Amino acid sequence: MNNINHHIKYIEYLLRKSRTILTNDISFHADRLSKISGTYPDLRNPVTLNEKICHRILFRHDPFYTMLADKLLVREYVEKRTKLIKLNPLLGIYNRVDDIDFDKLPTKFVLKCNHDSGSTVICTDRTDFDPILAKNKLKLSLKKNMYYTTREWQYKNIPPVILCEMYLDIFSNKNKMVTPEMLRVHCFHGVACFIEADFTDSDGNGFINVYDRSWNLQPFQMEYPNTPSPVDEPESFHQSVIAAQELAKEIDYCRVDLMLKGEDIYFSEITLSPKRGKLKITPAIWDAKLGSMWDLSLAKTGPIEPVYSCP
Rank of each mutant, 00 (worst) to 15 (best):
L138S: 02
Y167G: 05
F102P: 00
V121D: 01
K86S: 08
R81M: 07
S141K: 00
L138I: 06
L90W: 07
V161I: 15
N114P: 07
Y148M: 10
V110L: 07
T150S: 13
I162H: 04
C164A: 14
R151K: 01
R96Q: 14
A134T: 04
K86I: 03
N173S: 14
R81H: 10
D125A: 13
K80R: 14
K174V: 08
V110T: 06
Y147H: 05
D130M: 04
K80Q: 13
Y147C: 04
Y167P: 06
G92H: 04
L140P: 10
A134H: 04
D116W: 01
L91T: 08
G118K: 08
T150G: 09
D101G: 05
V161C: 12
I158L: 06
F102N: 00
L142G: 01
F171A: 01
E79L: 10
L140I: 10
R81I: 05
L142M: 02
N145F: 09
H115D: 12
L87Q: 03
K108Y: 05
V110W: 01
L163T: 02
M146W: 10
T120N: 11
N136T: 12
N145A: 08
K112P: 00
N114C: 03
L140Q: 14
S141E: 03
R151L: 02
T107E: 15
D101H: 08
V110A: 05
L111H: 01
R126Q: 15
N136G: 14
M166Y: 10
K108D: 06
K104R: 11
I122V: 09
L133V: 06
D128W: 14
L133Q: 11
P106T: 00
W153A: 02
L90C: 06
G118E: 09
L90T: 12
F102M: 00
L142C: 00
D130T: 06
V110H: 04
N136E: 15
A134F: 05
K108I: 05
C113A: 13
T107W: 12
N175L: 08
N157E: 15
T82Y: 04
K144Q: 15
K108G: 05
W153I: 01
K112G: 01
P160C: 15
L138G: 03
I122Y: 03
D169C: 06
W153K: 04
T127I: 11
Q154E: 13
D99E: 07
N136R: 14
I158R: 03
F129V: 05
T120G: 02
L140V: 10
S119L: 10
G118Q: 10
T124L: 08
D169Y: 04
D116Q: 03
L90I: 14
F102S: 00
I85T: 02
Y94Q: 03
V121A: 00
Y147R: 08
K156H: 08
Y155V: 00
D99G: 01
M166T: 08
N157W: 14
L84E: 12
N173F: 11
I170E: 12
R126M: 14
K143A: 11
Y147D: 03
I132T: 15
P159E: 15
N88M: 03
I158F: 09
K86H: 07
V97M: 05
N173L: 12
S119P: 08
Y167Q: 02
N157F: 15
F171Y: 12
D98P: 02
E79A: 12
I93T: 10
T82P: 05
E152D: 07
K108H: 05
N175A: 11
R96C: 13
S119R: 11
V97D: 02
C113H: 07
S117D: 11
I132N: 13
D99Q: 02
I100T: 09
E79I: 09
